[in-house]
């Protein structure tokens, strides 16, 4: 199994840390992982993205041009990455702020109203974990016990008291994800 994922959105949405938690959880589950961020001018301009690869085998390239899954959190990222999803692949997006919805007919499309739900529940800081929960519902690649360990490893010790809140957000995300188009 190899899963190649792009997570993209605004800086501050927790895109890079979502990727890091996913990657660290992968290590805890004894998988090979890579995490390749955008660190350049695009990031300084307000958008951020990260490529995460999870695999049972040694990972060749951390730089990928087509993805099994794209998790899209703003319009710029939708424009940039919608065509990079492999045919039959998965696109998850938060429709909040999306003006131009994906038109591709050859991929599976889901929405997750994560920012709306995070606002309602006062969980803005765990917005990214709601999104991660949606992804894990569709692709349960990492078992919850290893996500727990991944959170422990990714978060500094002083924030470990927030782990239950993060895990709750993941569960919220699992309920929230909605199919738009299945192929």
């Amino acid at each position: 199994m190899t899963e190649e994922i792009i997570i993209a959105g605004f800086g501050g949405q927790g895109v890079l840390s979502m990727g890091k938690i996913l990657a660290y959880s992968g290590i805890m589950q004894n998988q090979e992982v890579s995490w390749m961020p955008s660190y350049g001018p695009e990031m300084r301009g307000g958008t951020a993205n990260v490529t995460v690869v999870l695999s049972d085998e040694r990972i060749s390239s951390p730089v990928i041009n087509s993805y099994d899954t794209a998790i899209i959190l703003n319009q710029q990222s939708m424009d940039k990455f919608v065509d990079t999803v492999k045919p039959g692949g998965l696109l998850i997006y938060d429709p909040n702020g999306i003006t131009h919805h994906p038109e591709r007919k050859d991929i599976n499309i889901y929405t997750i109203e994560a920012s709306e739900e995070a606002g309602k529940q006062g969980l803005m800081k765990t917005f990214n974990m709601i999104v991660l929960g949606g992804f894990l519902k569709l692709k349960p690649l990492i078992q919850p016990e290893f996500i727990h360990k991944g959170l422990e490893k990714s978060l500094p010790a002083r924030h470990h008291k927030l782990i239950p809140e993060n895990e709750k957000a993941i569960e919220v995300g699992k309920e929230l994800i909605k199919a738009v188009q299945l192929v």
């Binding site: 890091k20 090979e32 992982v33 890579s34 995490w35 390749m36 951390p62 730089v63």
Partner: peptide, 10 residues
């Protein structure tokens, strides 16, 4: 290079 420096792996 910037790829190897910036990416995270096990």
């Amino acid at each position: 290079d910037g790829v190897i420096g910036q990416m995270m792996e096990k």
